[in-house]
């Protein structure tokens, strides 16, 4: 296939950035989207032009490092699929494809298609006192089978824990809200007995940190869940709102 790419190029955080058009040839339908970008970059380097910078690592859809807005959709047209798992057979010869970075105030652009997502790390860690973790140290814990957990709860916790932290939910949201990301971690730990002790503090602190990072509020549009490559359900946002209300009463 031969394609026309319209790619966001931006030298660094201070540069204004612009869309640049490239023709790319010899694209096979069996290539992944990132392999298509590899081919484009090889062709650019041969012409003496600097390659397009984009984040990627495992290329198996699990590390959460890759993420491009493809024709306006985070991670592209195929549902439940990260950019690295999207294959070129979803496109046709002669197509024009627009490729942009995640756009959100809390995710500043570093270069080209690379953004800074460290805000997510700060939401997980907060100040080390109740956040996206269970406050236990190594050693001195009970036997793994000491606390039975109903299978349904464990399965639902796993649904939430599957979040890869890619940020597509933020990129998809008209408000650039991080509610789905936060709700996934709050839901995962809140469903398990190990997460109960800090349940109220966790939700209050994580949401407060999310606000501080400059993410927008949630207006239940559902774009986040539609873009999520791991199909994290909106139900977790409802669950988190519930927890928030309870926590506000308990903690004032």
């Amino acid at each position: 296939m031969n394609l026309t790419l319209r790619v966001w190029r931006q030298k660094n955080a201070k540069d204004r950035g612009r869309i640049v058009e490239y023709k790319v040839h010899d694209v096979s339908p069996d290539m992944s989207f990132l392999e298509m970008l590899d081919v484009t970059n090889e062709q650019l380097i041969e012409k003496g032009e600097e390659p397009i910078a984009f984040d990627h690592d495992c290329r198996e859809g699990i590390c959460g490092m890759c993420g491009l807005v493809i024709n306006g959709i985070p991670h592209g047209p195929e549902s439940a699929t990260t950019t690295c798992q999207l294959h070129m057979r979803n496109f046709s010869n002669g197509d024009t494809i627009t490729i942009e970075p995640w756009r959100a105030r809390a995710f500043p652009i570093i270069r080209d298609l690379i953004v800074d997502r460290t805000a997510f790390d700060r939401i997980i860690r907060v100040d080390g006192k109740a956040g996206g973790f269970v406050s236990i140290s190594t050693g001195g814990v009970p036997d793994a089978n000491a606390i039975p957990i109903p299978k349904d709860d464990a399965d639902l916790a796993m649904d939430a824990a599957a979040c890869v932290g890619c940020g597509a939910c933020v990129a998809a949201c008209p408000n650039a809200s991080a509610m789905l990301f936060v709700a996934a971690k709050v839901g995962h730990l809140g469903l398990l007995p190990q997460g109960q002790t800090e349940r109220h503090n966790r939700v209050l602190r994580m949401v407060s940190q999310m606000d501080k990072e400059g993410f927008g509020g949630c207006t239940n549009m559902g774009e986040c869940a539609a873009a999520c490559p791991k199909e994290i359900s909106l139900d977790f946002i409802a669950r988190m709102n519930c927890d928030m209300i309870k926590a506000s009463f308990v903690k004032g």
Binding site: V141, N145, A154, L192
Partner: peptide
């Protein structure tokens, strides 16, 4: 395994709730 369960790792479980 004990450590990971205490951290909240959602390992697969049987219907009785054990691992």
């Amino acid at each position: 395994i004990d450590q990971c369960v205490a951290q909240g790792v959602p390992f697969a479980r049987e219907y009785g709730g054990l691992l």
